[in-house]
Computed example of a mutant assay.
Amino acid sequence: MTQQVLLGVENISQLSWGAINGCEAASLLEGFHFNQEAVEVSYGEFLLDMPISQDGNPYHGFGGSPFKNQSGKFEAIFTCPLIEWGRKYGMLRDLSGANSSWLFDEVQRGYPVLTYVTVHFEQPKWEKYPFGLVPVNNHAVILDGFDQNRVHVSDPIDGKYWMAKEKFETIYYSRKMAVSLTK
């Protein structure tokens, strides 16, 4: 039987800062703070340091504004530019493509994992953009706990909660994008 692991990562509410699209930055900063990194950096300062993609492509930087929706933009930042930016603050490891057991292994080792999912863990709503097919209900959370049947996340929209491991894995496997905040 799997024991319960719970790291206890803080929760940063992206909405309380007016960052309706700021989930990746909030999740990343939660993980850094847990690792005692970037502790002097507020979420607002962190958002202002995030690289913005001039072409709106989340594979090049944040594709738009974390504070508003813009027509034709995909307001997100994907793993490669997120890692490049985040390495200014701490150590990161790309787990994209990994089996979910790798994510749980990282948490077991004491490392929070930024995981790309969907808002409220709903089924992905796919749309085509010039850079590819992506879920318009894109979201990022920190995976910071698990037991045999559940996972625990710190969600910048919905707070901290436990949920069914099967539901988490279903949504994670729709893209398999994750970043471990190693020490």
Rank of each mutant, 00 (worst) to 15 (best):
Y172L: 03
T170S: 07
P156L: 04
E75L: 08
P130R: 06
H120D: 13
L114K: 03
Q148C: 06
E106C: 13
I83R: 08
A178F: 06
L114V: 15
E37N: 09
E30F: 02
G72T: 08
P124C: 03
Y89Q: 02
S100P: 12
I52M: 03
F104N: 00
E24W: 03
S16W: 09
L133S: 12
R87F: 00
F34L: 04
Q4Y: 00
P130M: 07
G132K: 05
D144G: 03
F62K: 07
E127S: 12
R93T: 14
D158C: 13
S154M: 06
K183C: 00
G72D: 11
Y59G: 04
W85G: 10
R93F: 09
Q148T: 07
F78W: 13
Y161E: 07
P130H: 07
G44R: 14
P58H: 05
V117M: 08
G18M: 12
Y43V: 10
S71N: 12
V141W: 03
M177Y: 13
P156D: 09
D158E: 14
I171R: 05
A98D: 15
E127N: 01
N57I: 00
A38Q: 03
S71C: 01
F168L: 09
D49C: 06
T115A: 15
L48M: 13
C23T: 10
M91L: 11
D105L: 09
P51F: 01
W162F: 11
